[in-house]
Write a protein that binds this DNA or RNA. Structure first.
Lengths: 148, 148
DNA sequence: TATTGTTATACTCTATAACTATA
DNA sequence: TATAGTTATAGAGTATAACAATA
């Protein structure tokens, strides 16, 4: 027999890890919606943002900075190339220097706008003076989780 | 040519959404490692925790409470059944009331222990008196993200 | 008909192994 | 040999559509 909804207790509501997961899912979904009209998903947009600030970097630079497996970057880079957003230039050894084309620059501006708007949405209940403190805390939780 | 690592700037480091994603990934990976010896992944363990506190609830109760698609619960429930952790009892209509078997109770205790230890690990830099405040904030960010 | 449970499917994210190319 | 890039693949998380069973 079904328990009525109000009677359900939630043993997870007191867990930081649970709220991290749930909140991140909600925030990422909202961001994905804001990027939809640009034909980019969150990963592709994140990569574009990073490339805009680090023109000439290589795939392995990106992997190290964003803690992504180089293999997982391949489809993302291909997508940006497909959109005409990327220029590739031969680098040292097998390395390929990536930079934004003119079209990529324009797309980059729109992505930045979307991210900024999204930050405003998810942070609208956070007093501005506490923002930095909260991000420092998230960075620390991230480090603590990585070194158990 | 490759840019030296120290020269790389990170335009994402100032974004709350980025740190949410990165921190959640790190925390969830750590939790998964702590659950490995119980042969449970994070989703299965979360479900077990919920069922322990809501014995007799149905699949659609769970879906509503954890905001999961009922279809996605099927493999999780099957896994717990496979481990001998669940009892199923016919309920109203097609509904099936789920509860923990004796074996499930024992597993539940171990899962709770793992979650508690994980909370200690990821929260070890958070002053206890600020924990509730931070979780309230995460809940609020979650709500804000859902209603853009 | 409305609700519940199930199956099949698909897309994204993440991770690893194995391969190729270049200094 | 060491580094960089690529391919293939596998597992987990999430979402929808379609179907079956029951009141």
């Amino acid at each position: 027999m079904s328990v009525s909804l109000s009677a359900l207790s939630d043993p997870l509501d007191n867990l930081l890890s649970y709220h991290l997961r749930r909140t991140t899912t909600a925030a990422t979904t909202a961001l994905a919606n804001m990027l939809q009209h640009l034909e980019l998903n969150v990963s592709e947009a994140t990569l574009l943002l990073f490339l805009g600030a680090n023109q000439g970097c290589t795939q392995s630079d990106i992997g190290r900075a964003l803690r992504a497996q180089p293999a997982n970057l391949v489809p993302l880079i291909n997508k940006l190339v497909l959109l005409g957003a990327l220029d590739k230039q031969p680098g040292k050894g097998r390395a390929i220097a990536l930079s934004l084309s003119d079209e990529g620059q324009q797309l980059h501006a729109k992505v930045q706008q979307a991210f900024t708007r999204h930050e405003e949405v998810i942070g609208r209940s956070i007093p501005p003076e506490r923002r930095d403190e909260i991000m420092a805390l998230l960075r620390q939780v991230c480090r603590d989780a990585c070194h158990p």
